[in-house]
């Protein structure tokens, strides 16, 4: 196989991103202006055009040059599955639950990214990480967040 599919993909992605930025300049009616009075759209349009050209060059080179694609590496599905959603969870709950629980849940769940995980050690790790984060960010850095947030208010009558 002489084509390098990876490079073709990279090139196509860059072209697409360049076009998207260009489209957004047009969509939001950013003023391009003139060289003398450059508008907010001027530099982005130049950059987006350059990116399209570069992307095309990368794709073409991938199609014609004989660069062997590198060996396939396993995709860490387990890791991606367990880790990627965590920041979203953290962002959704941090202001409601306060510091302690979101940190604990994130650390606990992230333990499962590794196959060798055991429940007890995941629990212990999460507890340790939570304690460390609370000391660093709450006690030392003084992050203005309660340890247990307003969603716990029903407990404090």
């Amino acid at each position: 196989m002489t084509r390098n599919r990876q490079d073709i993909a990279v090139g196509v992605i860059f072209v697409a991103i360049g076009l998207l930025f260009g489209f957004d300049v047009w969509r939001t009616e950013l003023d391009v202006g003139t060289p003398l009075r450059m508008g907010p759209g001027f530099f982005p349009v130049i950059l987006a055009s350059v990116l399209v050209v570069l992307g095309a060059a990368i794709a073409i080179r991938g199609a014609i040059a004989r660069i062997p694609p590198e060996a396939f590496r396993a995709i860490p599905w387990r890791g991606l599955l367990f880790i990627a959603p965590l920041p979203v969870f953290f962002g959704l709950t941090i202001e409601g639950l306060g510091l302690v629980l979101p940190i604990f849940v994130v650390a606990f769940a992230a333990s499962f990214a590794s196959r060798e995980v055991r429940l007890v050690s995941a629990f212990a790790t999460a507890a340790g990480v939570t304690a460390f984060c609370v000391v660093v960010f709450h006690t030392l850095a003084g992050l203005p967040l309660p340890l247990f947030g307003p969603w716990f208010d029903f407990l404090r009558s």
Binding site: G79, I83, L86, P87, F90, G91, I94, L99, P102, I103, V106, A107, F108, A110, S111, A113, S114, E116, V117, S121, A122, T125, A126, V129, T130, F132, C133, F137
Partner: peptide, 16 residues
């Protein structure tokens, strides 16, 4: 081991 390292880094990242 990685099973300790990963949770710590992910949690620091979010809180940070």
């Amino acid at each position: 081991p990685y099973r300790v390292l990963v949770p710590a880094i992910v949690a620091f990242s979010c809180v940070g």
